[in-house]
Each structure stands twice: as C-alpha cells, then as structure tokens.
Design a binder for these strands. Structure first.
Lengths: 270, 270
DNA sequence: CTTGACCTTGACGCACGGTCAGGGCTGCAC
DNA sequence: GTGCAGCCCTGACCGTGCGTCAAGGTCAAG
C-alpha cells in the first residue's frame, strides 16, 4: 500500500494536486490507516495517471471527470471538442505573437504603421514634442474608433504636412506650448488658420461624405487639444469671433455652409 | 468629460475591466464628480487603449504595469520575453494536441501504441477481459515509470504471446478469475509455471542487466495482480513451496541463483 | 412620481493548485 | 526519555482577469 507521497511520485504530480482531485471528487478517497493517513493501491495510481494524461492534454478537470466514465463514442467526441479548443487557443496565441512583434517602440503602441511613419516625419521636420504627443494620442483614439478609415486619413495628413504654409502653421502652433491666453501672437495665428481653411475649401471643393468621426469623438479630441495647449482656448475663441466653431472638425458657425470632408480632415492638427 | 461606460466603450472593454485596472493600480483613479461618479479625460482613453493593446498581445497585467512606464530598451526586452513565453505556450499546446490525438479509445489512455497493439492481440487470441485489464493497468504503471524501456519490453512480450505453451498458460490463468484458493487446478498450474520459467531460463541463458523495474514497482504490480485474482495468493504460495518467490519478478528463493532479465520479463504475466 | 438606465462599493466565483499555518505520527539517534 | 527529521493531516488564503450578483444612490425623461 502506498502513502500519498508515493502515489504522487508514481504519477508525477504533487501531493497537493492529489488532495485537490480528492476534494473535487475526481479521485475517490482511499481507506485510511490507523493514524488517519491515506493508503492507496495500484488502481489509484492508474486512475491518477489517466487523470494527468487528460489534464496534460488540456482537458479541463471538470470534463476529465466525465471522460473517465465515458464510453468510446462520447470519449471520441469529447476529444474532438478539446482538440478544437486547443486549435483555437493556438490561433489566438499566434495572433498575439504577431501583435507583440509590431510593438517595437513607444509610438507604435496601439498605432498602425502609417501613423507611426507620420509621427516620424513630424519629428524630422522639427515639430515640437508636445505637438507630436497630442497628435499621437489623438490617432490612438481615432484608430480605436475607426480603424478602417485611418489609412485614408493618413494619406491626406501625409500630403498636408509637406505643404509649406500648413507646416509653418503647425510649427507655430507647437510653439504656443506654454504661452498665456493673452499672448500677442494669437490674433495673427487665428487669421492664418482661417486663411488656410478657406484656401483648402476652395482648392478641394466640398464633399459631404467624409470619415465618420462622431460628434463625441470630435469633442473628446478638442478637449485633449486644449488640455495640452491651454491657450488653445483663446485661439478657438478668436476663431469663433471670425465665424468658425470647433477645432478638430472646424466649421462655419450655425447657418453657414457645413465644412467639407476634406477640410474636416485637413483642419485636424491635433 | 467621460463617464466610466463611455470610457469603456471607447476602448472596447467592459466597465468591470476598467474598475479592475483601477483596483490593481494600472489605470489611475480619475476625479469624481459631485455625486461620486468617476470622470475621465481623453488621456485615460489613451492609457486604457494601450493597456488593452498590451493585454491583447498576451502580456500579463502585472507586466503591463511596468511596460507602460518602460523606456524603449526595456520595452523591447520585455516584448521579446513575452514573445518567448508565447512561443512556449504554443509549443505546449501543440504537444497537447498530439497527445489528444492519440487518445482514441479507452485502452490508449496513458498508454504507448505498442502496448495498445499488444492488448489488441490479447483480445484476438481470446484472453479473458480481466487479464487484459490488469495487464493494461500494469503497463500504465510501467510506462509512467520507465517510458524509455517500454518498447524493448513490449517486443519481448509480443514474441512471448505467440509462444503456444505460454499462451496456454496465460489463458488458464485468466480462467482463474473467480476461483477459490482451494481450487483443485492450482497445483498443476504452479507446476506448469515453474516448468516454463525453467525452460525460459535454459533457453535464454542468464542476463544480469535487465529493465530496471524497481522493487517497489514490482511489489505494487504483484499487489495489483492478487487484487484482481484473489486465488493468485495461493498460486504464489505454491510456487514458494517449490523454491520461487515473487511474481512479476519471479526468482529462486534467497540462496538460489537470481533470475535472468529475460525470465524477469517473460514471467511478467500481470 | 415612477421608471429605467446609469453609477457606487463589496464580495464571491472560475481552474488549478502553491504555499503557509498549526498540529499529529513515526522512526532513528542520542 | 527526548530530540530531531521527515512524513502526514485539515483548513485557509493567494493569484489571474475579470464575470456576476447584491444592495443601494443618481440622473434624465415621461
């Protein structure tokens, strides 16, 4: 007769596992000797090895219970089921590996590669880190909501950033990082923003269907922008005096014509 | 400002998950409004998306914590580490799948295919089910202890089973299933067992090195055998009268020459 | 005022044991 | 006899990553 540790070592499991199987009814409690110790026979070893075989093969313990008692047909069906779930798990893990592989540096965390490339380009062109960060965070949000539209929007952004006027505008906005709302450069900046929007509207015409950035997301992006650039509040005020509302999705105030899709995207600077 | 449900839906997680991240310190607790509700800003969405990105990629939450704060180098190292563990997991699961695939019918549970084939042959030859069961269980035990020796032992067993004298002996032992220790056939059976062992010893000569079935395992197998065939106790007694001890590893009593490896294996009938 | 949809904290549950804590038994050496 | 090492016992908490229920408080609309 075997003690619990002998049983465990025969089957290659821990004593704790044996007692666990007892507690869940997988392995029947054996007789006890005069001092209360469990005493096992060879059949217990066999049962335990079978349990481990099933468990090692990935079957949940709960099913192991039925499987030990099952006939050939049920058993075969159950094996197939377990196998299917193993396949699924493997597929998931392989997907995880691919995702992990794309997580190279900080910027690419949660971002598609087009956006990473765009942020790289911003760095090359000397944009302020603060501006790049808010841009990155904004695109994380957008990519999470509209993954299928990111590529198209990015193409436009890439084109824009090579446009000298707009680039100059971005650089100057980046310099506003720590300025106060009363900074003297603000009115001129508002004029330049307005001029650019008008020019863009004239150049690309009007398009009603644009990327469906929702009003809520727009508000969130605006809020993130003013959070990063406190004086942006003032800039937006100045633009409202000139008849524009919003920032991410900047438009003519109320009765004026709605902006085009292109200006929507083009005017996203943060 | 966002409520917890809005935050959760932006990042594609459940409210419960958000609160869980708070509780483990992954996501900082935001401000509360006048009625105690949590209020989030865009930065929280970004952090949450990053957390999910890492978690979806298979990083454990505990590490996610560090990863969010890590620099590029640590991050790259950590990613590699996670990837390695994913690979390991995949390898394990694939091994599980192979094992599962071998679990076709009852006999093969925890048994290598050679043994399954042997049990099949026993069935074909008309051995009693009881004998086949104890044989199967014995081999489960042996395979668990000495997986590398099973193939060699099985080769010998396969040869033995085709030997007419031994086969006849096995068949008769199988018929003892429900007999009493006083069954009149016992002495003759003991004589035949002895004769066979002697013949086998003469035929194969003596070999000192055999498969290392330990004394404990031998005792266990003997115990399992007498458990299944109660009258085996009597048979072993009769053999002891004739100068033999044990069963699985049957040998000359004390001073007599030790058995050869071949007889050890050959005499394993259960 | 009611209703239903939201929010809060707290706690249990899952699978599979690991790891104490607190105590008893056994056998061997001194 | 006594001390020690090495077994054994039960009971209970720990960890993962949340799901789910309980028992409320809050908010906006009808």
């Amino acid at each position: 007769m075997l003690t619990i540790s002998q049983l465990a070592s025969y089957a290659g499991v821990t004593i704790r596992a044996v007692r666990h199987y007892h507690s869940v009814g997988l392995l029947p409690e054996p007789q006890r000797d005069h001092s209360g110790y469990r005493r096992y026979d060879a059949a217990a070893v066999v049962t335990l090895i079978k349990i481990r075989t099933l468990a090692d093969a990935g079957a949940p313990l709960s099913r192991t219970h039925e499987l030990l008692a099952a006939g050939e047909d049920e058993f075969a069906a159950a094996v197939e089921d377990i196998d299917r779930r193993l396949r699924d798990k493997i597929r998931d893990l392989q997907r995880h590996r691919k995702q992990i592989a794309q997580l190279a540096a900080g910027d690419s965390l949660a971002l598609p590669p087009e956006v990473v490339a765009y942020l790289e380009r911003m760095r090359e062109l000397g944009f302020s880190e603060r501006l790049i960060e808010i841009e990155r965070d904004s695109w994380i949000l957008i990519a999470a909501q509209l993954p299928d539209h990111v590529a198209a929007m990015m193409a436009i952004k890439h084109a824009q950033i090579e446009h000298p006027t707009l680039r100059r505008l971005y650089l100057d906005i980046g310099d506003l990082a720590d300025c106060t709302p009363t900074d003297p450069r603000m009115p001129a900046l508002a004029d330049r923003v307005e001029a650019f929007i008008k020019a863009a509207g004239a150049e690309f015409g009007e398009v009603d269907e644009g990327p469906p950035i929702s009003a809520e997301l727009t508000a969130l992006l605006d809020a993130a922008f003013v959070e990063t650039f406190p004086c942006a509040t003032r800039l937006i005020e100045l633009l409202e005096e000139r008849g524009w509302t919003g920032w991410t999705n900047i438009r003519r105030t109320d009765h004026a014509r709605t902006s085009t899709a292109c200006t929507e995207v083009e005017s996203r600077t943060a």
